[in-house]
């Protein structure tokens, strides 16, 4: 067996499964978004579904909201994760515990986190009760609206809760791989701590941080159940709108749902490219792609 054959054989099962399931599903979605559904007599593909949604304020509002959620969640998570990783790199009492909690957090499903955030931050939730007990507010209505709110604060809080440990662990692993020698060298050459961080460590961490952020952005943009639990009734996050259009009893809404799915896929695809560009190359030393 040649090496080439072996490689093909090793890759074939994964390709067949993902091709059969993932790419065929995407393909069908694409066809249907062009309103190509021979079963119900639509045989002339067109762009009507895209034209409809792009002209609809509901869709644009949802797209904007989802982009806002994804951008703010990603930036906040990345910033806090960087701070947390820098903290956890040092020795102090309780570090091991926090390291464990970081990993523990990864095992908690997003839905559970969302419900927890709801119970914490709603206007009659735990924080509102503390504020009331402390005399800061006179009733639930005076507590700021942080869930089911127009700025999606609750949704963003949930993502930050889940993604800070995710990005943080990636950064910690990278820091471990980088070691402290580079910074030490910079310090010995007269750089301040801050300079050593911004000029030496941060640039070396950046590719990993960007790759991890791409994963977080794609997830926060495309998740369905979290905005469903924590979002306001209008505008809805794009995935919620897409799924609702798909399950609308009016079949005419389906191509629009498919078009929205394609737009979500497109943004997801862009994140794939960002990830692939910045993630550590696989294989031995050489850059993979």
């Amino acid at each position: 067996m040649t090496e080439r054959t072996r490689i093909i054989l090793m890759l074939a099962p994964a390709f067949l499964l993902l091709g059969g399931v993932f790419f065929s599903a995407l393909g069908l979605t694409l066809l249907r978004s062009f309103r190509y559904m021979p079963v119900i007599g639509l045989t002339e593909p067109d762009l009507a579904a895209y034209a409809t949604i792009l002209a609809s304020p509901g869709f644009l509002g949802s797209l904007g909201l989802s982009l806002w959620i994804a951008a703010v969640s990603t930036l906040t998570s990345a910033g806090l994760a960087l701070a947390a990783a820098l903290l956890l790199r040092q020795t102090f009492p309780g570090r091991r515990l926090i390291g464990f909690l970081f990993q523990l957090n990864l095992t908690v499903p997003h839905v559970v986190g969302a419900i927890g955030i709801l119970y914490l931050f709603s206007q009659s939730g735990a924080f509102a009760r503390l504020a009331y007990a402390g005399g800061l507010i006179g009733g639930p209505a005076e507590f700021p609206a942080l869930v089911h709110d127009p700025f999606a604060v609750g949704i963003i809080l949930q993502y930050v809760w889940k993604e800070v440990p995710f990005i943080g662990l990636i950064l910690l692993a990278n820091m471990q791989a980088i070691g402290e020698d580079h910074e030490a060298t910079a310090r010995s050459l007269g750089a301040t701590r801050w300079q050593a961080f911004t000029h030496v460590l941060l640039p070396m961490l950046m590719p990993g941080l960007i790759a991890a952020s791409a994963l977080v952005f794609a997830f926060a943009f495309g998740a369905y159940e979290i905005p469903l639990l924590l979002g306001a009734n209008a505008p809805e996050a794009l995935p919620v709108l897409a799924y609702r259009s798909y399950t609308d009893v009016d079949l005419a809404a389906r191509p629009e749902a498919m078009a929205m799915a394609m737009i979500i896929a497109l943004i997801g695809g862009a994140m794939v490219l960002v990830y692939a560009r910045f993630a550590r190359p696989m294989g031995r030393g050489r850059h993979a792609g």
Binding site: S122, G139, P140, A141, H148, N233
Partner: peptide, 23 residues
């Protein structure tokens, strides 16, 4: 109305929650 009518509960469950907590 609640929140000066700028927003409405999405579902009856959210309203029940408001009622349960005296909002």
């Amino acid at each position: 109305l609640w929140r000066e009518g700028q927003t409405y509960p999405n579902t009856v469950v959210q309203m029940n929650e408001l009622f349960a907590n005296g909002e």
